[in-house]
Write a protein that binds this DNA or RNA. Structure first.
Lengths: 222, 222
DNA sequence: CGGGCGATTGAATTACATCAAATTTCGTGG
DNA sequence: CCACGAAATTTGATGTAATTCAATCGCCCG
């Protein structure tokens, strides 16, 4: 995972208070500063001390682990409204980088951990369980689905998280998708073109995917 | 995922109190009844209402999800001292079955959820984060490791959880290992024999693995 | 209007799956 | 204690989905 040419890092610092509406029920109030990142910047490294927690205001973040020889596995993508970087132990179990241009809310870890009553802890528990559920889905996909099914699932899930727009804007490149799905960039590319040939999707440029037949796509997920 | 001949289900019910020492720091006190299972019995099904939580007293439990066409992915194995089946939502996101003969502690969900102060919630948070960490390891393994590396990781991890005995007793059969590692039973079998040929391991019967060269095995995990 | 990087396409290779026996293990009953 | 039989595992032959290697294409930015 290559060094990239870094544009001027637009590191704005402004005090901010944000209400994150966790799906359905809870609201998570976080107090901190915003910070801006250009694409491909490190937010924190694997094994780094976990002093802050983060919440995506705009853009997308990837969390990942790497093997000694450089093979990379993306564990999750975080989208606007998602919180990440919360740890129980002293340091981060995975690295995190901006996928594209990103603005994050950065809060001190201590401000989150302690709040007298257990309200915050309960929210964090809910959050952790959501992450676990997604990770289990991911395990199922990597362990038992074909390349074709993986890509279909990916588009499907992304569309679901973005509230099912007919057309979605991929924040990440093909390599990121490959590293998330446990495939190579070539296989991902081929699968996209096959989907397009079959009429499942329609690409406009390389980042915009129009889901022509969303039901057929879901059906492909097996 | 065959129906199995069920021996007389030794369903003993005895009131029990158990202290689970969570690694290092916390202790989790659970009050409930014990229940016995023979190999291959359902503890709960995917989508079933989550009325109880469970803790392994002896034996091993597998949690899993299945695709519509029957492909199965094992998400985790639970060993003595492990707690499982805790949910935030109303029902279980995965099925759970006994791997071999098992005794579980079964506690009512309500007894766990509420305890005035947030002590229990904090323990559950720690537990969820542990599960998440393991699931992330699993994603890395399924997404980016070869069959050989997967089997090595599996033996390695199992040995670590069993406090690194020189010789370990596999509670699960080859099919379970395959369904955990996203492989076929044949590939798992071939890999075991190759490891044995190379002198990495020595099998005694089909369940006992002697780790002849544990360091070489760890090195194989990449 | 180039130029460069990301993406696509093609050909050859391979790791793992599939299909099909043969063999071993281990519980059971004699 | 030993023989039997079903089930689990191993082994072998073959097939194939996905990877690897190698150009080429085309989108997007300056």
């Amino acid at each position: 995972m290559p060094a990239r040419s870094i544009k001027s890092p637009p590191t704005i610092k402004t005090p901010v208070v944000i209400d994150h509406s966790s799906p359905e029920i809870d609201r998570l109030r976080l107090v901190g500063m915003t910070r801006g990142y250009v694409g491909g910047q490190e937010v924190f490294g694997e094994g780094e001390r976990a002093n802050n927690v983060y919440s995506v205001i705009s853009g997308a973040v990837r969390s990942f682990r790497v093997l000694a020889d450089g093979r990379r596995q993306i564990l999750d993508f975080y989208l606007p409204g998602d919180m990440f970087g919360v740890e129980i132990g002293p340091d981060h179990g995975a690295g995190a980088e901006s996928v594209d241009d990103v603005v994050l809310l950065v809060a001190r870890r201590l401000l989150v951990a302690d709040d007298g009553d257990g309200a915050m802890t309960r929210r964090l528990l809910r959050l952790a369980k959501d992450d676990l559920r997604r990770s289990h889905d991911h395990v199922l996909t990597l362990g038992r689905r074909t390349a074709c099914e993986r890509v279909a699932s990916f588009l499907n899930d992304l569309a679901a998280r973005l509230e099912r727009p007919r057309s979605l804007d991929l924040p990440m490149g093909r390599q990121d998708i490959a590293d998330y799905l446990g495939l190579t960039i070539e296989t991902v590319s081929r699968t996209f073109t096959r989907f397009q040939t079959i009429g499942l999707i329609q690409m406009h440029g390389r980042r915009t995917v129009e889901l022509s037949r969303p039901n057929a796509l879901s059906a492909l997920c097996a």
